[in-house]
């Protein structure tokens, strides 16, 4: 399968007044085109640092990031981060506006996405008028609007309650699959990682190293809620739980 991104032997150390903090140590991961990959690890282990390095917000100390020069990366954050003073349509367009690509064609594309994912009636409303799940969908559309080839999802459902989280995660997964995007998701939630991903990387506690890689083999023709009922789900869950347990 075509590798869209290769992270090879990445290390990162932060300098602080209290000394050096080693965040990442010799991290290597491969991302296949069209795959949904999850990175799971304890809080503060350096998962977000890896995303920051991939998208260019932070510099790495060592290692190589191999990707196509034209690879467009979209980032979805832990919170919806919608701007309260903009309408839903304006929020969905903000990335394109910043990149000066808010032309008619892209406006139509965003309107189509909003229509496709049940938000067209809300385009002139403000974020406070939407539910948590709807806001997350707008946040995803805002990311998709710039037509990224690779999506980085940084604990995108952590702000939602448990039930909404499962439902919204399934929605988001379906949108990503329908738009034929490749995605990497950071999560703490083992169930979420197993039910959504084809590949899971388990990170150790800080400094993060790749502790284990799992190729998840669950039926593709069922939704993520159904996947949770499969017997293999429990096996994966147990293994990853013990991996994480050792890292705590």
């Amino acid at each position: 399968m075509n590798k869209i991104l290769q992270v090879k032997n990445i290390s990162k150390t932060y300098n602080t007044l209290n000394g050096e903090i080693e965040a990442l140590k010799d991290i290597s991961i491969d991302i296949n085109e069209g795959d949904f990959t999850a990175i799971i690890g304890s809080s503060g282990c350096g998962k977000s640092t890896l995303f920051n390095i991939i998208i260019g917000l932070e510099n790495k100390d060592n290692g190589i990031i191999k990707k196509n020069d034209n690879l467009k990366i979209g980032y979805m954050l832990q919170e919806d981060a919608l701007l309260p003073y903009l309408t839903i349509f304006e929020n969905a367009m903000i990335g394109l506006k910043i990149q000066k690509k808010d032309n008619d064609e892209n406006k139509k594309y965003v309107l189509n996405l909003l229509k496709e994912y049940g938000l067209i009636e809300f385009i002139n409303k403000y974020p406070k008028e939407l539910s948590g799940g709807m806001k997350q969908r707008v946040a995803l559309i805002r990311t998709l609007a710039t037509r990224p080839d690779l999506l980085l999802l940084d604990e995108p459902f952590s702000a939602l309650d448990y039930q909404s989280r499962i439902k919204v995660a399934d929605d988001v997964y379906n949108i990503i699959k329908k738009e034929k995007k490749t995605a990497i998701m950071i999560t703490h939630d083992i169930g979420e990682a197993i039910s959504l991903s084809q590949v899971i990387y388990v990170f150790s506690k800080r400094p993060a190293v790749v502790k284990k890689k799992y190729n998840i083999k669950l039926p593709n023709n069922i939704n993520s809620i159904e996947k949770r009922k499969c017997p293999e789900f429990a096996n994966y869950y147990e293994k990853i739980w013990s991996d994480l347990d050792e890292t705590i």
Partner: peptide, 20 residues
């Protein structure tokens, strides 16, 4: 979080001030 969002879109300092 919003500042980070703008950075991921490669917003300039002027855009950051103006829109955020």
């Amino acid at each position: 979080v919003k500042i980070k969002l703008f950075k991921t879109f490669k917003a300039s300092k002027r855009q950051m001030l103006h829109y955020l």
